[in-house]
């Protein structure tokens, strides 16, 4: 049964309020706790230290791509989350002679890219480090521009994290032919599939929001990732309960107690798996 608009709005207010409380609570507890690990070796990040090291040794920059993640659109949170991710990558390349290059197909994201370099790079960043290739989602011109840049600037590696469609294939193919490493993640399903098939390292879906937590010693990034984990866990539990209720309604011979026991068992197994991860 679909919910009416008023109920949806009330639920939205409650959801946003609880998320805000969770963010502050998680940050409070993580700030009191020392950082457990830097996340080195986490899936998807194995080769990044190699690219950073190669860039430092050879003086080649690292290329970071936002794709179509645009400030001022519904993709603003994605652009902000990737700016945080790029901030930590740039911090890790401080010893290099070349400041990283950031590309975007959204003109509105150019100031965010320049600001990220300014804040993270200790040296004297030049404005040309942030590069705009026109324009918008699934921009073939952006893919062509970045592919050309790969040959000219010869980056040590590419982190393409943001909003990409199938045009990602052109960039990943060019990088492969030039022997440059790639890590890719997209909020679009087709871009994600291309990334899985063609990138050296791949992050899936919501990992794009927790990527910063894997690279930094900043406890706030880890706290924000935990809030997402909490919501995801609650969502899985809710869906599992609904599934069991539906199943018990269809199979009259199965008793309610058995369903409850199965639900509790599922909950315990999920909690154990979550702790182990």
């Amino acid at each position: 049964m679909p919910l009416d608009d008023t109920t949806v709005r009330v639920y939205s207010i409650i959801f946003v309020a609880i998320t805000a409380v969770l963010i502050f609570t998680a940050r409070f507890f993580h700030a009191r706790r020392s950082r457990r690990s830097t996340g080195q070796g986490a899936a998807g990040f194995e080769r990044m230290p190699g690219w950073i090291g190669q860039g430092i040794e050879t003086g080649r920059p690292l290329h970071l791509g936002f794709g179509g993640a645009a400030i001022g659109s519904e993709k603003t949170p994605i652009a902000a989350a990737e700016a945080e991710f790029f901030y930590h990558i740039i911090r890790a390349t401080q010893s290099s002679d070349s400041a990283p290059l950031i590309s975007t197909s959204s003109a509105a994201t150019v100031p965010l890219a320049q600001d990220t370099i300014r804040r993270a790079w200790q040296g004297d960043p030049q404005w040309k480090q942030a590069q705009w290739y026109p324009q918008g989602d699934r921009s073939i011109a952006y893919a062509a521009g970045v592919s050309a840049m790969m040959g000219v600037d010869e980056p040590a590696g590419h982190v393409l994290a943001g909003s990409f469609g199938p045009e990602l294939a052109l960039m990943l193919n060019s990088a492969e032919q030039l022997g440059q490493g790639t890590l890719a993640v997209s909020d679009q399903l087709d871009g994600g599939a291309v990334a899985f098939a063609m990138a050296d390292e791949v992050l899936i879906g919501e990992q794009m929001f927790s990527a910063a937590a894997h690279l930094s010693t900043d406890t706030t990034a880890l706290a924000d990732a935990r809030v997402s984990d909490v919501w995801r866990g609650l969502l899985i539990i809710g869906l599992s309960i609904l599934l069991l209720i539906n199943l018990s309604a269809q199979l009259a011979s199965v008793s309610g107690t058995l369903v409850l026991a199965a639900a509790l068992g599922l909950l315990v197994v999920s909690a154990l798996l979550f702790r182990r991860s």
């Binding site: 998320t19 963010i23 603003t76 949170p77 879906g205 929001f209 997402s228 919501w231 995801r232």
Partner: peptide, 8 residues
Amino acid sequence: LGTVVAGV
């Protein structure tokens, strides 16, 4: 979910 957390 990630978008909501980042947005908030």
